[in-house]
Nucleic acid binder design. Sequence first.
DNA 1: GTGAAAGCGCTAACAG
DNA 2: CTGTTAGCGCTTTCAC
Lengths: 354, 354
Amino acid sequence: MSPRGKSVNPQSQSRPTIHDVARRAKVSKSLVSMVTRGENGVSAGKRAAILEAIEELNYRPNIIARSLVQRRTRILGVMIPDLRNPFFSDVVSGIQVRARELGFRVLFNTGERQPALEESAIEGLLELRVDGLILAAPRAEDRVIAHAGRWAPIVVLNRNSPDDSCDSVSNDNIAGAGLAVEHCADLGHRRIALIEGGAGIAARTRCEGYLRAMRRLGLADHILTAQGAHNEEGGRRGVQELLQAEPFPTAIFASNDLCAIGAMDALEEAGLRIPEDVSLVGFDNTTLAALRHISLTSINQPGCDMGRSAVERLWERIDGERTTPQHDVVVPSLVVRSTTGPPREDPGIEGVEF
Amino acid sequence: MSPRGKSVNPQSQSRPTIHDVARRAKVSKSLVSMVTRGENGVSAGKRAAILEAIEELNYRPNIIARSLVQRRTRILGVMIPDLRNPFFSDVVSGIQVRARELGFRVLFNTGERQPALEESAIEGLLELRVDGLILAAPRAEDRVIAHAGRWAPIVVLNRNSPDDSCDSVSNDNIAGAGLAVEHCADLGHRRIALIEGGAGIAARTRCEGYLRAMRRLGLADHILTAQGAHNEEGGRRGVQELLQAEPFPTAIFASNDLCAIGAMDALEEAGLRIPEDVSLVGFDNTTLAALRHISLTSINQPGCDMGRSAVERLWERIDGERTTPQHDVVVPSLVVRSTTGPPREDPGIEGVEF
DNA sequence: GTGAAAGCGCTAACAG
DNA sequence: CTGTTAGCGCTTTCAC
């Protein structure tokens, strides 16, 4: 039962090689190779014979062997923290499109939000000798990423590059958080709380952005944060924590949409109406936020474009056309929907303060 | 700019090989190999020297080269139709867990719901010589899958196996659709419509299940279907189409949760309340359905278990312990939430019929 | 225990 | 245009 046990499945023994095809088509291996690689310079007759042999034998070039000699795989590896966040679906589709245009295959991996699994996922991709690596909001330690960056070109998404060997494509999370806070303040809110998104770098930066914006707007005394996470459960937990606070905030900024949706659930469960009793802002502007039933005010992050850019940066490195690090910053924007509104008039409580 | 251009990135030139490690540790390549593979039979002193050399050189075994000689990659390939459907997140996490236990790495791919891209994704995985392949609800043609199955062990999820070379793990979609229809009928509905999920096999089977259940319950005259798709947009389109129908159904079964949520949006937009004016049932019981704001009655499909089973079936094949096809069928269940209720009393319309 | 040699399937020169 | 040769980096006998 050991994975090291010898494989005896019938398929692996019968897989034809380039040699089998050559023999069957009565040509040399080189010609077969040229055909599978789409090179020209093979006579029409032989080419036809080769294609026929390939078809008959159900032959597939062993790109393992091919990349061993070519020293490149034409594969881009992508590590995503998890598949549950629709934001990454957008990123991925941008990656796919651009990679396809450039003739690369894309292979995904996930670290299930656990640093140890993430490291192993990255390691697996590196061992596979992918030509480039995209790490979406990685939680792995800086030194792990920097180490990996010495091995293959890496683009990190929504995280600062650990060193000069990596490029990065980030949404300006500080500015995004600022937009969220300003929007609430503009509506008249002062007690604007944050539900944090955990230890990930994007979450931490959004927290920083929240703090800065609050101070900038003269609301430093109203700063209130609760522990959360970038998923529904985190949002629920955050609300539980905020419910202990006195007075309860009139607006809540959740570190991402999933978190906001969890918060939404918990708020309603506690009998609070949105946005009458409390306003709510998310981050990522995922497809979820746009659902009529949710209709969540959120900070938009152009995931698809970010994915495209990441591939672009990788390609420049793989191509050798650029060797200096590049750090793209995309600008977030506010999308107002139905979860934000002016605070309820409540002079009773407001009067007490100040 | 051609992808065929020679790679000149600095990293690829400096990657150390097993030979470099051996030289640095002053041992033979064989010993280094034994260490990287975790074999014992290497003296403590040499082992330490080797590990030190590996560390200093930042060496990673080239599993490309390794698998070329071992004739296996210890990689499981997984093709998912798209990353937007949370159901597949569950499947994937089941796959990951079991694969890790068995010592396999998992690599994902997506065909973005387009048969041609799917074929290319499958082909890529096969060329990579993955040890086994899981195809989640593939849209590719039967012959493509059968062809692939002659090459590596394949498990298809939620689709009939194209031939004896593939195993399958499926939810009983016929029964699941039956549960949905019966639930509505039990509540007193008769005009139960279906929003179809498109051309995928799961969608077609659910449609079949709907038709059978309607006939079985004596509701054949009330059969009403609308074109849709397994995403929000499909649900919206389906509702538009149903709105043309006279009389409008009192209950709608949508082919999956995403579709149901789109339908929900469109229904509310049309001024219909759920479940007062119309009941709604989804399929998959995704995390979305469980959200308080959505609280969608749905048919549960144990995605995580299905993923685990798929890996199990693959492992039996890879191990050679089984050569006969196996087809697992998991049983769906009904999860009642807030989108279903008894039909509104409406003798005016009911009276007209029959 | 350890090292040397052969070869996995393929490509990349180069010679015909 | 076509065939031959020599590796890619690694594992795997098989001697020592």
